[in-house]
Design a protein around this nucleic acid. Structure first.
Lengths: 122, 122
DNA sequence: GTAGACTCTGACATTAATGTCAGATTCAAG
DNA sequence: CTTGAATCTGACATTAATGTCAGAGTCTAC
């Protein structure tokens, strides 16, 4: 498929798709005239990339990480370097801290609602 | 305390503290001469803000979330305004959504760690 | 072939969070 | 007071990801 369709299917702008390619996150072949051509598996790949961005990784870490993922491209999954692994764990720890904090707030808020209304905060 | 001390205690730059204030995330009073003066509770507040930034939230989302959390951190408005039950439920829903998003990202990261490192992300 | 839709590259703009710097002002200790 | 440390505002810089636009080239359906 061409870039327009990939953009539509992933809800990611063409600009960003080109940027991902520039950053080594996404591959494409080219038509004789120079237009990008994507495999169907690119849809999943792009969605994966978006998820990792959303999880707080930057493109350089994602680039390091992608070769370690057994994607639909079937290639042998490489192994993360210790440094990358550590960075991933750190990011996960950051998420955990925020989640814990928000959960605590939620519990307190639940109590407030229970106390203030007398019934279940369903 | 003044901004220098708050910066030291939270390991957040003075520049960022002023920015947080500009974004409505942090309050301060002023001395006669215009210098910022912070309550001791600002330390926790700033640490919480940093936590949320580190988890990938932006200042506008944090601004949405903080009012849901000030009940917990004992901020100035904690008991001042008894909120409507509906407002409380809305705040809880906001927290829930944020927690869900972060949990999703955490799961993605967990999955990635498992795949890329081969062993348990403990 | 030709028209209209699509894509290309390259450049410049933008947003968010933060860094840095300059010149002016305030604070606190002697 | 004076002085050195701290702070103020405001401006400009930076990085990452993305937006936008222009001019040129490509693709495809007729």
């Amino acid at each position: 498929m061409r870039i327009g369709e990939l953009a539509k299917r992933t809800a990611v702008s063409e600009r960003s798709l080109r940027y991902y390619e520039e950053q080594g996150l996404l591959e494409s072949s080219r038509t004789a005239g120079g237009h990008r051509e994507y495999l169907p598996s690119s849809v999943d790949r792009v969605i994966r990339i978006q998820e990792l961005f959303a999880a707080g990784l930057n493109s350089s870490k994602i680039a390091d990480l992608l070769p370690c993922m057994r994607d639909v491209d079937g290639g042998p999954a490489a192994h993360a370097t210790p440094l990358l692994e550590q960075e991933l764990r750190e990011q996960r720890a950051r998420l955990d801290r925020a989640i814990d904090d928000l959960n605590r707030s939620r519990d307190v808020l639940d109590d407030v609602i229970k106390t203030a209304t007398g019934h279940n905060p369903a």
